[in-house]
């Protein structure tokens, strides 16, 4: 980095700009004051107590965890076979199939949320939880197909052919050879999918019903009407949980693998 003072200065500025506001939220969460202020007048844990006791956040946490886990599982169950077909088989329309599976990533999430609200909830009378689950699975499917597909693309198909050649059936080959090869990709896809679903706002925004709202949307509603450190406390708890997830992922597959790096 010697000899590039301007470059280094810009990079340092960028990191402060990226991480500073996040650390600011943590400082505000531990405030003993009654309003949002920085620097906080003193330290206390009272906003955490208040945040944890707030019923709408508890309900929203349950909804978000349920939707994120369910949609991640569904996206993998549907996405892995699709990735197998796209990566390992030659058939007409293979490129079109790949484009179709990646297409939900292109459309604005807010537009998809609005469409699901209109067609599934209003017209077909599907519950908010059902619409959330379907919508989030659609949202995650491109990640699932792409990340597990990438792990397949890197593996040598000769391994599977050898298994078949030695007399293993298609299922046995899948469970004993293909699946183990894909495992790092599946773990990466699962982590990325869970967090993507859990954090989503635009898709979840309109898909709510009595007692069914996701946590980020509930936080957004809260901030719109009352501006106090409660949301900073929830943010800090989410930040801590995310750090734990990142560290565990680092041990399992390498943190940067989650982003395909």
């Amino acid at each position: 980095m010697r000899g590039r003072p301007l470059l280094t200065a810009v990079a340092a500025l960028a990191l402060v700009f990226l991480l500073g506001p996040i650390l600011l939220v943590v400082a505000i969460a531990f405030s003993s004051g009654d309003t949002v202020e920085f620097p906080p007048p003193g330290l206390s844990g009272k906003w955490f107590t208040k945040a944890l006791a707030y019923q709408p956040f508890q309900d929203a946490l349950t909804t978000s965890a349920l939707v994120a886990a369910g949609a991640t599982l569904l996206a993998l169950l549907v996405g892995i076979p699709a990735a197998l077909a796209i990566q390992r088989r030659r058939f007409r329309g293979r490129k079109a199939a790949e484009a179709l599976f990646l297409s939900p990533a292109i459309v604005p999430e807010l537009v998809l949320g609005f469409a699901l609200f209109q067609q599934l909830m209003v017209t077909l009378r599907i519950t908010a939880l059902g619409a959330l689950l379907i919508g989030h699975t659609v949202l995650l499917l491109p990640y699932a197909v792409r990340v597990t597909g990438a792990s397949l693309a890197m593996a040598d198909p000769a391994l599977e052919e050898a298994g078949r050649g030695l007399g293993a059936g298609p299922l046995r080959t899948f469970f004993h050879i293909t699946l183990p090869v894909m495992t790092p990709g599946i773990v990466s896809a699962a982590v990325l999918s869970f967090l993507t679903s859990f954090n989503n706002v635009p898709l979840s925004l309109l898909l709510n019903g009595p007692g069914v709202t996701t946590l980020p949307v509930q936080m957004l509603n809260y901030v719109e009407f009352s501006f106090d450190p409660v949301v900073a406390a929830v943010s800090t708890l989410l930040l801590a949980a995310t750090v734990v997830v990142a560290l565990v992922t680092e041990r399992l597959v390498g943190f940067n693998k989650v982003f395909g790096k």
Binding site: P21, I22, L24, V25, I28, L195, F198, N199, V201, P216, M219, L220, V223, V231, A232, S235, L238, L239, T242, V245, A246
Partner: peptide
């Protein structure tokens, strides 16, 4: 990896 709500609040 963090929600946009968390990142916009500050």
């Amino acid at each position: 990896l963090l929600s946009t709500v968390v990142r916009t609040f500050s």
